[in-house]
Design a protein around this nucleic acid. Structure first.
Lengths: 150, 150
DNA sequence: GTTTATGCAAAAGTTTTGCAAACTA
DNA sequence: TAGTTTGCAAAACTTTTGCATAAAC
């Protein structure tokens, strides 16, 4: 899964007629980081230090723009919030029901996707895997050992 | 994908110690319908006619209970709301980006799921397919024909 | 009769909107 | 300078919570 350079994207967005403000560039850079899975709120809080005038509305606007233009994906694995992911293509996400952690998973899941399904045109496929992550599994086991529950 | 009888589920829930109120039974019956993909709001509005004292809080409580007990799934394909589906097992959903319709899709997508991935324990897998449905595709084509756009 | 769920209204949380001011090209 | 975008604050939504009342067993 190749990551694109943010400068390249800035150039493309200009070509498409967008105004590239400081806020937009900052948000783009932030979200293009490796293995980044951020909520709008997280992006806002972090960038607020660097850009004190930044507003949450701008974060939402920019994320929507970047989704629309196909540079990031909205990941809806958590029913309570949308997270944004700049790794493109079909790649499964894992959500830990205990700690809420979200991560990309690599292995053991094979998907074959067609461009058309039941007459519908397919643009994107999201795969969300729910369960308990290895850290929480370990903690559970240790907890049981120490406290002799069950 | 076999659908279960709601009376059977009522019996099971009683066995598990739940109080089966009229509201819960009504919501359960509603959501067990064939190919049902409802939001809490839709369920509330529809049942409000039959049960004028019903409150939205009860709908949410009951849906949460039914999810927890494994009788329905929360489908998070639409970033703006959660829909509830009583068809169980891994089965892909399709979301039309134009009309917002959600439907089960049957064909052309193969998934093999393991009980463990990267050391994490897997309980559930959701597959969401985004695109344009056949009805909207047809309308788009007809619209272009009539109006000579492009 | 005791326990549990309901209904109400208010709260909490996320996302969107409208508009004057600021910024970009 | 013309045209966009921003920031603010308020609004719009969805979902949750607390508690007295009502219903279930």
């Amino acid at each position: 899964m190749k990551k694109r350079n943010y400068k390249e994207i800035v150039r493309e967005l200009k070509e498409r007629g967008y105004t590239l403000s400081m806020a937009r560039i900052a948000i783009l850079r932030y979200v293009m980081k490796e293995n980044a899975h951020y909520t709008a709120e997280e992006i806002y809080k972090d960038l607020k230090h660097e850009y004190p005038t930044l507003s949450i509305a701008t974060v939402y606007n920019t994320l929507k723009l970047l989704s629309k233009e196909g540079y990031i994906q909205q990941i809806m694995i958590d029913p309570n919030k949308v997270i944004y992911d700049s790794t493109l293509g079909v790649h499964p996400h894992f959500y830990c029901k205990i700690c809420g952690k979200i991560e990309d998973i690599s292995s053991d899941l094979t998907v074959s996707v067609n461009r058309e399904m039941d007459g519908n045109r397919v643009d994107e496929v999201h795969i969300y895997v729910y369960g308990i992550c290895k850290d929480c599994l370990r903690k559970e086991k240790e907890g049981n050992k120490g406290l002799r529950i069950n």
